[in-house]
Design a protein around this nucleic acid. Structure first.
Lengths: 134, 134
DNA sequence: TAAAATACGACCATTTTTATCCGATTTTAT
DNA sequence: ATAAAATCGGATAAAAATGGTCGTATTTTA
């Protein structure tokens, strides 16, 4: 319960890696997967998502790889999560998918208090950046 | 990702129910399951857990059921979660199960920052009570 | 032209979560 | 006594989410 996905974990590890190396040098999925002992294929998918979200830039072909596109200070944790996950990270299903998704929506009495906790978590993800995890 | 379990949701709904009725009257799992349109058997198991944790008191037999044992102000959300879930609600597996559970523990670079978020969440669960969800 | 890399979809395996079922026990009321 | 209504708890099934792998195509460099 309340777990972050491995995908997000791997994404954060990768972004921290990009942010911690000096010049904006290119890193490959293979390098990162070996360095941090993370499944190559899965990491590759995560990096592709980050590239689609314009958080990193991809270069195909031999000597290709990825580079960071922004200052780590400007990459929020929420940006990373949103890039990687299809669904927003929400405590309750209805927060992510709306009233129709919940068959006890009308009888539910805990939505408001959970919403309070949710806002707190959202705020954290929205405030914290990659610069703070280096 | 980051979801609360249905078990915890049902537990909170039930406790809010107990806390919102006036006198400390007895409620059965059946009553609550019908009132809030929640699966009876699953709710029953959750209530059993809450009873084992001495958050509510169970009475067996005809006209049995459960009553709240404490002032809602003194029942923390964290108490409820700990009673219902075997494992602590943690963002990362290693936070709940220790270093041995994680095969990239030594290479992991995001433990500290995630710990910061975790403490924030923990603090919320530890501070908020059932009184605040009525 | 071969090699090394990303791109992307499909798929499978595992784990977690949710839900149900069943038999046992307890207690009350008839 | 007996039946009914409730909790207790173990077992299990069903469903969903997650993690991981595979294969093929494309791109780019040497």
């Amino acid at each position: 319960m309340l777990r972050l996905s491995k995908r997000v974990e791997y994404g954060l590890i990768a972004l921290r890696h990009f942010a911690s190396i000096e010049d904006h040098s290119v890193c490959t999925a293979k390098e990162i997967s070996q360095r941090y002992n993370v499944p190559h294929e899965l990491l590759a998918k995560v990096l592709q998502k980050l590239a689609q979200a314009r958080i990193i830039q991809s270069y195909q072909g031999v000597r290709g790889g990825y580079v960071l596109l922004h200052n780590p200070k400007n990459i929020k944790i929420s940006d990373v999560i949103n890039a990687i996950e299809l669904e927003k990270p929400m405590l309750a299903e209805c927060f992510a998918q709306g009233p129709e998704s919940c068959y006890i929506f009308d009888e539910c009495t805990i939505r408001r208090p959970l919403g309070k906790i949710q806002r707190n978590i959202n705020n954290f993800f929205h405030t914290m950046t990659i610069a703070e995890i280096i």
